[in-house]
């Protein structure tokens, strides 16, 4: 073995070490709050306020979970949150896909689309909050038990995210494939559904997940619009406000489950290894 080989191996080794360090740091940044949350959720009320704070609790308890499940509002809030997230994510993804497709295929629609999407993102949400609420009152959707009004707002909020996520996927599909399908005898509608949509499904699944999580977490509009028919984030907020740290932590922990389930459920679609190689 020559010396240059040795030194390059050394370099590679230290590079790998540095990479490992960065990974550990990032992981720690995510894991430590998560651990504290889980600890808090499982620690008896008195001990969670112990000073100095401890990393490991002496007694484990499920009483916080029990008290969360005992809340009569929980069941309806879970269902409502879930329905709002699913519906708004579905609407945003469907509309975002259409917008993204137009942006990917037309020069005029690309500039208009980008202007609209980034404009919507630049707008401070608080500026539209009151008018939106008024509008929902007129429509009869304000504080509706089904959460339809909030779903509508969340869909609008998520639309730019969905469109931008889907855009790059559609833009990557060669136009030649559409021409080939057209010559094979496919209508424009058929081309979109048979050629473009299947190839973009990985990106659309990602868009759906992002929109779902966006809605599942969303607090401000949920607080404003679902005043009495609450979703989960305001519920969690009221717990914290009234100092119920244990149950709040337990609820926060439970809230992570659906998001994880959605990500896992859509994993096969996300890994699109099958979806390349039509063109050389």
């Amino acid at each position: 073995m020559t010396r240059t080989d040795g030194s390059s191996e050394l370099e590679r080794g230290s590079l790998a070490l540095a990479r490992l360090g960065v990974c550990a740091l990032v992981l720690a940044g995510a894991a430590i709050p998560l651990y504290l949350l889980a600890k808090q959720a499982l620690t008896p009320e008195l001990e969670s306020f112990a000073w100095p704070p401890n990393w490991l609790s002496h007694d484990l308890t499920f009483e916080h979970f029990a008290s969360v499940f005992a809340v009569s509002e929980l069941r309806s809030a879970v269902i409502r949150s879930f329905a709002v997230a699913i519906v708004s994510a579905a609407v945003a993804t469907a509309m975002g896909a259409m917008l993204a497709y137009a942006m990917a295929r037309g020069r005029a629609s690309r500039s208009v689309g980008f202007a609209a999407v980034s404009g919507a993102r630049l707008l401070p949400m608080i500026a539209v909050a009151i008018p939106l609420a008024v509008w929902l009152v007129t429509l009869g959707l304000y504080d509706s038990p089904s959460g339809a009004g909030l779903a509508l707002v969340h869909a609008a909020l998520a639309l730019p995210t969905a469109a931008l996520t889907a855009y790059s996927a559609f833009a990557a599909i060669p136009f030649e494939l559409e021409e080939a399908a057209w010559l094979d005898g496919a209508s424009p509608m058929r081309i979109f559904f048979s050629i473009d949509l299947p190839q973009a499904r990985g990106a659309l699944a990602a868009a759906f997940i992002l929109c779902f999580i966006l809605s599942w977490d969303e607090f401000g509009f949920a607080l404003l619009i679902q005043v009495s028919n609450r979703t989960l984030p305001p519920l969690l907020y009221y717990y914290t406000v009234f100092g119920n740290v244990g149950p709040a932590s337990a609820l926060a922990l439970l809230m992570m489950i659906p998001a994880i389930v959605v990500v896992i459920a859509l994993r096969p679609v996300l890994s699109g290894s099958l979806l390349s190689g039509g063109l050389r």
Partner: peptide, 9 residues
């Protein structure tokens, strides 16, 4: 087509 334009999916 030049690149065959096969449908990859």
């Amino acid at each position: 087509f030049q690149n065959f334009a096969l449908y990859p999916h």
